[in-house]
Computed example of a mutant assay.
Amino acid sequence: MPPKTTDVVEEEDLDTLADETALAARRVVAAYATDAEECVMLFNMLGIAPEDDVEND
C-alpha cells in the first residue's frame, strides 16, 4: 500500500538530534549490533552516523 501523503516527511522538516541523544543512541546500537557492518548500516538507517569531519582530541 503506498504511503499517505501525510506520512511523507520532507528532509528539511526533520529535527536534528541533540549530540548527547545521538551519542546515547550510537552506544545502544553498537551494543546490540552483531558486527561492525551491521552497526554502520543501522547508524545510517537511523541517521545517527558520526560526522566524517569529527576529529579525536
Results as ranks from 00 to 15, higher is better:
1 M>W: 04
1 M>V: 04
1 M>K: 06
2 P>R: 00
2 P>E: 00
3 P>D: 02
3 P>N: 03
4 K>R: 11
4 K>V: 02
4 K>S: 11
4 K>T: 07
4 K>M: 04
4 K>N: 09
6 T>C: 03
6 T>I: 08
7 D>N: 10
7 D>S: 12
8 V>T: 04
8 V>M: 10
9 V>R: 03
9 V>G: 06
12 E>C: 09
12 E>N: 11
14 L>A: 07
14 L>V: 06
14 L>N: 08
15 D>C: 12
15 D>K: 12
15 D>I: 13
15 D>H: 10
17 L>D: 01
17 L>K: 04
17 L>N: 01
18 A>V: 06
18 A>G: 06
19 D>T: 10
19 D>L: 13
20 E>D: 08
20 E>W: 03
20 E>A: 12
21 T>K: 08
21 T>Y: 04
21 T>I: 09
22 A>T: 05
22 A>D: 03
23 L>D: 12
26 R>P: 00
26 R>S: 05
26 R>V: 03
26 R>G: 00
27 R>A: 08
27 R>T: 09
28 V>H: 07
28 V>G: 08
29 V>T: 07
29 V>A: 03
30 A>V: 00
30 A>L: 00
30 A>N: 00
31 A>L: 07
32 Y>E: 09
32 Y>M: 11
33 A>K: 02
33 A>Q: 02
34 T>G: 15
34 T>Q: 14
34 T>P: 12
35 D>R: 02
35 D>S: 03
35 D>P: 01
37 E>K: 12
37 E>H: 05
39 C>E: 06
39 C>M: 07
39 C>S: 02
40 V>N: 02
40 V>A: 01
42 L>K: 08
43 F>C: 03
43 F>V: 03
44 N>W: 00
45 M>S: 15
45 M>D: 14
45 M>L: 14
46 L>C: 06
46 L>F: 03
46 L>I: 04
48 I>R: 02
48 I>P: 01
49 A>Y: 05
49 A>D: 05
51 E>S: 11
51 E>P: 06
51 E>I: 10
52 D>E: 13
52 D>K: 14
52 D>Q: 14
54 V>C: 13
55 E>C: 13
55 E>Y: 14
56 N>M: 15
56 N>V: 15
57 D>V: 15
